[in-house]
Design a protein around this nucleic acid. Structure first.
Lengths: 239, 239
DNA sequence: GGACGCAGATGTGAATACACTTCTAGCAAG
DNA sequence: CTTGCTAGAAGTGTATTCACATCTGCGTCC
């Protein structure tokens, strides 16, 4: 189970990258907060050099902001930006979907449908929001992979990570019931090679909660400054 | 004019980032070639530390590939990937365009049209391919900005940089005549708030040369290994 | 004669050391 | 009491040094 003995992953920078990303994504590092390099490095058990490499990559990917002579800070939780990311994600997924509709084999679509059907059996309570979110991301990412466009998949993965916290907040409100059914419906349209129908459904599937983003962010702030169960869980996984 | 005295841009890492990116984009560093850090650092007049930060960012953005214990190498010039990037770019621009159609003011569209009309006066010979390409990128980026979605603009910029070399090759074949007219036509559709027409035109505008990518890459290799005027020009700008 | 193996060289990954900028606290002048 | 100035502290940016992995070439063993 533990693969550490055979994989001493030569680069501590990569490990640190994952760890810090998890911290930023779950807002264990608080939005707007400035990162103290020596302190964080010490707490992660490495020197500043690999930490700075990780911070650099995270800044390049939009998780952090770099300011000259003032180091790095976590990107503030800004409604406008979250909206922007949601919008981008919707467009990207619809675009990938249209490509997938032309390119995906019937077998691949069936396999994904099987996965989606299996996901339906997961419990739907507040406790399992993270697992549900993970399943949802996996579904969407697998679907995007059927577009056979690696760069789109890459972008989608990055986008998903950046809005994960907000989506987790959203998931906990038990909105999921309809989600899984829509997944299956999208696949049915794809199977029928009806790109327009699939695209339209995907668009509403993603954009549905756009107008509630401000509320979700409000709830997000509450979570961040009063507990943050997501950060706790993520830490358990990574560290 | 020269702002160097008042702006000694505290971070040599940023300068190095721009320089190395220019090298990678123009394939002054050859595709597949492994980057020797000490050598490159010396030739840029800095130590390995800021250079490595630059390389990190470039790898995160997809310009370079990082391999464990073997450092960085320039991403090879792969037809499949270029096609992927073109495809992504087409989708992204069409998506941004649809948003712009809803959101852009008449004034903004007119201003952009004026810019496009002005660009028409540029000479069209082989020598000015780089300027033409720059103007084209500016047009498309300005258009994307009208979507009011910062993340899309960011992605588009990155995509443009990654395919710049190939597009430059393409530009030198004097394909431009129709380009400018199509730009104006797209704007006219937007002005009439006809998103579908604009989107369709944009799609063909970008995807037109997709089937010729293999040829362009062949020409690209020839350029890289026999002269590479683009690298020479870019060096003049940056260094 | 070929394959394996073993230094030495080369080059990357990480840690430490140093320089310089920004922030802070305290004092002095108005 | 407020404002401005000035060391000192704190923290980032860069250089240097050390550690370790990979590559190369030559010699030896089979």
């Amino acid at each position: 189970m533990n693969d550490e003995p055979q994989t001493p992953p030569s680069r501590s920078a990569d490990r640190v990258y994952d760890q810090v990303k998890a911290m930023a994504v779950t807002y264990r590092l608080r939005p707007g907060e400035r990162v103290n390099e020596v302190e964080l490095a010490r707490s992660l058990g490495v020197s500043r050099t690999p930490l700075r490499e990780a911070l650099n990559r995270l800044a390049a990917e939009g998780f952090l902001i770099a300011t000259v002579n003032r180091g790095y800070s976590v990107r503030p939780l800004d409604p406008k930006r979250v909206l922007t990311l949601y919008e981008y994600r919707a467009m990207l997924e619809v675009g990938a979907l249209r490509l997938a509709c032309e390119r995906a084999s019937d077998e691949a679509l069936d396999a994904l449908a099987a996965f989606a059907a299996r996901s339906r059996d997961e419990p739907d309570d507040d406790e399992h929001a993270l697992e549900l979110l993970t399943l949802d991301e996996q579904f969407h990412e697998s679907l995007a992979r059927l577009s056979d466009n690696e760069e789109m998949v890459r972008s989608l993965r990055s986008l998903n990570e950046r809005v994960r916290f907000i989506r987790w907040i959203d998931m906990r409100k038990g909105r999921r019931s309809s989600t899984q059914d829509e997944h299956l419906m999208i696949l049915r349209h794809l199977r029928a090679r009806d790109a327009d129908a699939a695209a339209a459904l995907m668009q509403t599937h993603i954009a549905r909660r756009l107008d509630q983003i401000t509320d979700m962010i409000r709830a997000g702030f509450a979570e961040i400054y009063t507990g943050n169960a997501l950060a706790a869980k993520a830490m358990g996984e990574v560290a």
